[in-house]
Nucleic acid binder design. Structure first.
Length: 200
DNA sequence: CAGTCGATGTACT
DNA sequence: GTACATCGACTGG
C-alpha cells in the first residue's frame, strides 16, 4: 500500500472527494490496526457553500479546515457524535471532505467492540458518526496529520470497482443544496439515499 | 419497509 | 433559545 502524499489533498476539493473513493483509511489504536475502504464522501467548501462549517470564516471549531491539506478535521455534533473529514487545498482555504462510509478491512473485531454489541457488519461503518465510533476517532484526533502515524490514507492499487454515484448531500436543509456527495453505487456500506444524477 | 422523534453538548443568534 | 454534516428506538402500514 502506498501512502497518499500531501500533493493528493492540495488539489480542488471536488477532485479530491471523487479520488478518495476506493482509497484505504488506516487508524492505529493502541496495538491494533483498524482500516477500511472509502465508499461514500461529501465535499464542503468555504466558497459559496452555506452548509460548510468554514462558511463565514475561521473560528475555534473549524480552524483545522483552514490549514494545509492532509490533516484530519474532526467535529462534534448533535451532542453525542463525532464526524471526520480530510482537509483539502491550501492554508487559508476552508475546505474538506467528509468521510461518510467505509467498508471495513482490518480490525473488524475491534470495531465491533468500539461500536457495542449487536451490530451487523454493515452497521459498523455505514454512517459518518458510526465509522468514527468504530475507529475510535474523537476530539483527540482532530488536526492529526494523515502521515501514516496514528492515521493515514493509502492507495492499495485497487480500482474503485464500481461506478461513482452523485447526489445532494445528506442532512443539509439549506435552500441551495449542492450535488457534492459521491459514492460507489451498489456498495452495501453506503449510508442511504439514491443518486439524483445517473452515475458517471 | 417508511416516517417520526428524543437524546444530548456546543456554538451561535 | 435554536440549530446542528446523526443515530437508534419506536410507530404504523
Amino acid at each position: 500500500m502506498k501512502l497518499l502524499t500531501t500533493e493528493f489533498y492540495r488539489r480542488p476539493t471536488l477532485t479530491v472527494a471523487r479520488d478518495l473513493l476506493g482509497k484505504v483509511f488506516v487508524r492505529r489504536e493502541g496495538g491494533d490496526t483498524l482500516s477500511g475502504r472509502i465508499v461514500e464522501v461529501e465535499a464542503y467548501h468555504q466558497d459559496g457553500d452555506e452548509a460548510a462549517h468554514s462558511f463565514g470564516g475561521e473560528r475555534e471549531r473549524n480552524r483545522v479546515m483552514f490549514r494545509d491539506g492532509g490533516l484530519l478535521y474532526v467535529y462534534f455534533t448533535y451532542g453525542m457524535h463525532f464526524c471526520m473529514n480530510v482537509v483539502t487545498e491550501r492554508e487559508g482555504t476552508g475546505a474538506a471532505v467528509l468521510i461518510r462510509a467505509l467498508e471495513p478491512m482490518e480490525g473488524v473485531a475491534r470495531m465491533r467492540e468500539n461500536r457495542g454489541a449487536g451490530k451487523t457488519d454493515v452497521e459498523l461503518t455505514n454512517g459518518p458518526a458510526k465509522l468514527c465510533q468504530a475507529l475510535g476517532i474523537g476530539r483527540g484526533e482532530n488536526g492529526l496529520s494523515l502521515d501514516g502515524g496514528i492515521v493515514g490514507m493509502y492507495d492499495d492499487g485497487a480500482a474503485p470497482g464500481a461506478e461513482i454515484g452523485i447526489s445532494t448531500r445528506v442532512g443539509i436543509s439549506r435552500s441551495t443544496e449542492l450535488p457534492w456527495r459521491f459514492f460507489l453505487t451498489g456498495n452495501r456500506w453506503v449510508s442511504r439515499g439514491r443518486p439524483s444524477h445517473p452515475t458517471i
